[in-house]
Design a binder for these strands. Structure first.
Lengths: 370, 370
DNA sequence: CCTTGTACTTGAAACGCATCAAAGGGGCCG
DNA sequence: CGGCCCCTTTGATGCGTTTCAAGTACAAGG
């Protein structure tokens, strides 16, 4: 089954090559009958334009690339979702690549996208993007997501440090004396959250803080492992407040503690980060700090559009999505869950076609484990 | 900043155009010094190969495309994850497109991928793929995921009908009299699950069954809405068993019921589908039927590789991943959750870098809401 | 010193399409 | 009937690579 090309269509339809090309790209230039004839021929032959050739000849692509560190991370998906909707709105395609927590792969896909004549590229980098400044000098608009770059360039970031601060303040308000943070602090965003926590606690030298790396993948099982480890400590070495740098991690910690007969939040309080809708629902919603992922994705595309339309390559511009915290709901103990005091965050957040946060503020949803 | 092309590199390095090309594609053919010189020049100039041109000239791409109906659906992500790992193992890239529950968009991305000289394309179709048989005739290997095609072609599918049957049997075992299924049955896979439920219940005409469409997006909020609606019915019209065709939906239903003071599983039992890790953790895990998404993605790529290596275009071959159910854990009532009888599914499932199901069997995880 | 072989390097010919200046055709006006 | 203008179609040109037959340089062998 030899591939049918534009010249085949032209010959078969009895028109010239350029006319078929016009039928594809500027249909308004053709007489309706010609257009119809060509379209029929295209369908009959099963012709499929060779994207490589059209990009090579034409230049732009009307499509964006998005490189994510991981697909099973709820927050990244919110970004993807926001980026997708905004891109479609402008008539652009969005292609997503999974860097799988791998520096090399991230770089690989980044280069791949830039080389594919994408109109623009977005990354949610794992480390600070300053290590590949070369990217910023490329002739393709690039936007960094969820991160603060010191190099000149575009980025849109939530204030991760503020998220840490919010959680810390929550812990302080709950009278915590010993906080354990669970997660891989080596990831840039998480580093900042941890930094925020430390800063907020600077005024409270009496509060002990401990950071435990949960492994590279931040799975529920990892959280469960840490939870077990915590549960097995003698009571006086056990934290009274655990922060999961991911909802899945936090949820895993809760599992382990509960399984070991430790009361949550009676003996240990637990909070997560991400705003995963599933964390919020069920009978026992998890307290979680929800950075505005959807909004970050949306603004990222807007920044790309701006660069494209102004033809101003790579000047510096940053968007910080608001770090104002909205407190969404409050249940103070697991026993309260039937008292109907609970306001389901996802009901407040509901808007158009998206289930998750669409506002540009970080939301803090107090759940039952706090 | 004019784009630097291969000829610039060649001129700058004082070698010919073809040599630079060789440096990129067949480095073993070059004298080490030459290679080094060229690489340095490439870095100095910030040269980035134009993928369109290389694909046009070269042919194959060593990359696969995957079109998913939705990104925020846990099951699709498992597929993506499995496909990604398997693809990387063979040295292929994986690009993902989000069809956003839109037929047109699905078709659009499909054509896009085929036109991009992808080595292969996979889809998790929303409707039966028989409506676009044209795709199957394309000169690019294509594999349909999580669906059964009657047209000749490749697909790998979980037995969705069996999943429905499993749930129905669960309901029967729990003595259900009135089952409500929540979700959009118009999606092909869900249709099959519903069919399986109906078949299993054929022998139990006394059991009433009802299907409620939760809207297009299957969000927690949608589930919550249905849950409310159920809660407000007079007790005798209320189901005693609710099946969410998605974990998020099921979780939303639980939220609403609990908020309205209805005991789960005391008055109403709830089960979900997908095997979302977050549904399994926390203090109150959700019962869920977990189709082997990771495995489906993996096998999909294997099927693609097979077509590529054999150069046998589009013959028919199907893989049905096993529908044998493994029962993972059992807790019969919410009061049991502290009795440590609970086995966390994600602990059993843990393997290598993946948190979710990696076996090729459908898993049924009994949680606390059942 | 010539021959043969080895190890690289060269450059022209595609790859399939978009573009655009130019040609073609038809209607209208003078 | 000729001249003009407008609408449609034409086809040569170039996009940045890869590929591959042909070329070069150098070493070893006779």
């Amino acid at each position: 089954m030899a591939k049918v090309k534009i010249s085949d269509v032209a010959r078969e339809a009895g028109v010239s090559l350029g006319t078929v090309s016009n039928a594809l790209n500027h249909p308004e230039k053709l007489r309706p009958e010609t257009l119809k004839l060509i379209n029929e021929t295209i369908n009959r032959l099963g012709y499929l334009p060779n994207q490589s050739a059209r990009q090579l000849a034409g230049g732009a692509t009307k499509s964006f690339g998005l490189v994510l560190p991981r697909l099973d991370h709820g927050f990244s998906l919110q970004i993807a979702s926001g980026a997708h909707n905004e891109a479609r709105k402008h008539g652009y395609d969005l292609l997503i690549a999974n860097a799988d927590n791998d520096d090399i792969l991230e770089d690989h896909y980044l280069r791949y996208f830039m080389g594919t004549q994408m109109s623009g590229v977005m990354v949610q980098p794992m480390a600070s993007p300053d290590w590949h400044p070369a990217m910023t000098k490329m002739p393709v608009p690039i936007v960094h997501l969820d991160i603060h770059c010191s190099e000149p360039g575009y980025y849109v970031a939530a204030d991760n440090e503020a998220q840490g601060r919010i959680i810390a303040e929550l812990a302080i308000a709950r009278g915590a004396h010993h906080i354990v943070v669970v997660g891989r602090a080596a990831f840039m965003q998480l580093t900042l959250r941890v930094l925020g926590i430390h800063k907020a606690l600077a005024l409270h030298p009496d509060i002990k803080i401990e950071v435990i790396d949960a492994g590279e993948w931040n799975t529920a099982a990892d959280g469960y492992g840490i939870g077990n480890q915590i549960a097995e400590r003698p009571a006086d070495e056990r934290p009274d407040f655990v922060v999961g740098l991911t909802d899945v991690l936090a949820s895993g910690v809760v599992s382990a503690l509960v399984d070991k007969g430790i009361s949550v939040p009676g003996q240990v309080r637990v909070a997560g980060c991400d705003g995963n809708p599933l964390a919020w629902s069920g009978s026992v919603p998890l307290t979680t700090v929800a950075p505005p992922g959807y909004e970050i994705g949306r603004k990222g595309v807007q920044l790309l559009m701006e660069q494209i339309e102004n033809k101003v390559p790579t000047k510096t511009k940053h968007i910080h999505v608001s770090s104002a915290a909205r407190t969404v709901t409050a249940v103070t103990a697991i026993e309260d869950i039937n008292r109907q005091e609970l306001v389901r965050p996802f009901l407040l957040e509901r808007a158009s076609t998206q289930a998750s946060s669409q506002t540009d503020a970080t939301a803090i949803n107090l759940g039952a484990y706090l």
